[in-house]
């Protein structure tokens, strides 16, 4: 399997904890004592999950022809059969992220060798983050101008906005669990800025194990 490195790797590698290779990427799975941290405010790297992106006027129909149920409204998401995520970004773009137990990204990438007109694959090299804990609003209020409490999680909202000046895609999965994706080249900056504020708020970095 191809060797992958997380965009946040430089910021994480000095942390002592349990590391494991997932999808060819060294991943921090747990840190001693992170259970308590996670309940208050934690930040973890999920870049190791596999993803696939596609856009264009024909993208929705093409995904449906591959037996995927796509979210019917712009900026919403739904679960994949084995626990992954399919998010509709705006009108005609989609982000698919596998769980540890699915392989949609791989299959779609293969199918993408021959796509119909108006279907365009999008290279996804994201820094993928998850925030957890009850203090998430304290962190987001300092870093983002969107009022997340105004969204109903039952609507499965996807929010494309800026956090500390970086373009991000955000999904509030639950009040105490937010997923964030950004372009990998901004990953280290976003991670470091968020992790610093997380620490100021009494939280810390946690392993990915309990969050996937």
């Amino acid at each position: 399997m191809m060797r992958r490195i997380s965009p946040n790797h430089d910021r994480l590698q000095s942390l002592s904890g349990t590391w494991r290779d997932i999808n060819g990427m060294p991943s921090l799975m747990s840190i001693p004592g992170d259970e308590q941290t996670a309940a208050h405010l934690g930040i973890a790297d999920l870049s190791f999950l596999t993803r696939f992106g596609v856009k264009g006027a024909g993208a929705a129909a093409w995904l449906e022809s591959r037996d995927l149920e796509v979210p019917d409204r712009p900026n919403t998401w739904r679960s994949l059969p084995d626990g992954g995520i399919i998010a509709r970004l705006g009108l005609t773009e989609f982000l698919i992220e596998d769980s540890l137990h699915s392989s949609f990204a791989l299959r779609l990438a293969e199918a993408c060798q021959h796509v119909p007109d108006r279907v365009y694959p999008v290279l996804r090299q994201d820094a993928a983050i998850v925030l957890c804990g009850t203090a998430i609003p304290d962190l987001l209020q300092q870093t983002c101008s969107v009022h997340f409490q105004s969204f109903s999680l039952n609507d499965h909202p996807v929010i494309l906005t800026l956090i500390v000046g970086v373009s991000v895609t955000i999904i509030p999965i639950a009040p105490d669990r937010y997923r964030i994706w950004c372009d990998g080249t901004f990953g280290a900056y976003l991670w470091e800025t968020l992790a610093t504020i997380v620490q100021e708020l009494g939280g810390g970095v946690v392993g990915a194990d309990r969050l996937i």
């Binding site: 712009p74 705006g90 009108l91 101008s145 929010i159 906005t161």
Partner: peptide, 17 residues
Amino acid sequence: MKLMTCPVNGARSISEF
């Protein structure tokens, strides 16, 4: 904070545009 309404994404800070 000045707001602008994106037809797809809704009302956001003008700094996002």
